[in-house]
Simulated assay, not measured.
Amino acid sequence: MKTSLAIVFVVAIFIVGNYVTTDDVMSQQIDETFNNINAVEVNGSFMNVEVESHDADNVHLWGELTTKKAGDDSKILYEVKGGTLSVWVEKDNKMFQNISGHLKLEVPKYIRVKVNNSSGSITARNLKNDKLGLTSSSGSIHAEGLQGKMNVSASSGSISLSGIEGELDVTTSSGSIKVYDAEGNISARSSSGSQVFEDIEGKIRTNASSGSLRFNSVEGKISAVTSSGSIRVTDFEGALNLTSSSGSQSGQNVQLKADSEFHSVSGSITMNLDNNADDFTFDLRATSGSLKAFGSSGSKTLKTGDGVIMVRGSSSSGSQRYN
């Protein structure tokens, strides 16, 4: 019993790999396999990080780091503690901008994974767990085949996700967000960049400070806010709550299943609805702009219909049209 406890709490820190040196370049390579690992944490710098599942029970780590200046002491390190494999780059602070590299990890499908990378891309494939975190401070993130509870963020770089199942929280400060083929609730935020959601089943709640929002083939509920950019919805079924400060709102092949709201400060609202007119009750208001709903029209206010689905719309500068 004492022996097994000692093994659990042993900390092993390794500097591993073969080193190849030229006049100006030193390359470190590592190729290691680990057993009895239940979590992986990666902190990369100036390198691309790739994580994907495999059928084995072990974790396979391959890495390469290249320094472009002689005397650069940057290196890849790893530590095993209590079932968690931690991998990171120790940078020579005087020369860290002269390094580049690649980390690739093959892991069991259900292992917990957390990747934090700076100045490099992240790629993740076929991971299934309730604690998946992917963060990049300067670089793109691409992931596919993820399942569980996911947190994906980039401070400067695009994010592209496909084949997602579960709860997703995705954020980017400067870069686009694209989510395809997803089932589950999605929360998204972007400061500067467009957002695209396609083939989604579930609730989407998103906010964009500057950038357009596009929704195609979505079933569920969309709550979207954009400060500067247009909103376009096509082939949709469910409930909508759309707000835009500067930009138009448009919809094509939209079937509303529950009460919905549309608000625009500066920009028109045009929704081509697949419902019958008698499905709706409209309560529309406009400071400046015409109002039309299935043949009825007004200038400042328009209240019409007695259907079970309530549609509320408001616009400060721009027309509204629902048909």
Rank of each mutant, 00 (worst) to 15 (best):
K75C: 13
G83S: 14
V87H: 11
S187F: 00
T172I: 05
G71F: 05
A208N: 12
K94L: 12
G202W: 00
A70N: 06
E167G: 07
E201W: 00
S191R: 03
N98W: 15
S137A: 09
A154Y: 03
G175F: 13
N93W: 15
I99G: 06
H142D: 13
G175T: 10
D92A: 04
I204S: 06
L134V: 04
S187M: 02
F197K: 01
I200K: 00
T135F: 08
G163K: 10
K81Y: 12
I111T: 06
D73T: 11
S118L: 01
G133V: 12
T123G: 06
M95S: 12
A188I: 04
G163C: 08
I204Y: 03
D181F: 00
S210C: 06
F197D: 01
A143K: 01
N117S: 12
L105F: 15
K131G: 02
V89W: 10
N129F: 11
N116S: 10
N129E: 10
I122Y: 05
K94Q: 15
M150F: 10
G145M: 04
T67S: 13
M95P: 01
G83Q: 12
I200G: 03
T135A: 03
K75W: 03
G166A: 04
L127E: 09
G184K: 04
L168P: 07
E144A: 14
I99A: 07
V179Q: 01
A154V: 07
S158P: 06
S137I: 04
F197L: 00
L77I: 05
T171Y: 01
S190H: 03
D73R: 10
T135H: 11
E167P: 00
I111M: 11
S160T: 02
S118I: 01
L168D: 03
K109H: 07
K128M: 14
K128D: 12
I99C: 06
E201A: 05
E106T: 15
K104M: 13
L103V: 10
T206V: 02
S137M: 06
T171L: 01
T172D: 08
S156H: 09
L168T: 07
F96E: 14
E79D: 04
K104R: 15
G82N: 15
K91C: 11
S176G: 15
S160L: 02
D72M: 07
K203E: 13
S155T: 13
N98A: 08
E201I: 00
E90A: 13
A124F: 06
S156E: 06
G71T: 04
K178T: 14
I159V: 15
K104I: 14
R189W: 01
D130V: 02
A182N: 03
F197V: 00
K69V: 08
L168A: 03
N93A: 09
V113W: 03
S192M: 14
G145W: 06
D169R: 13
M150D: 02
S209F: 14
Q195Y: 04
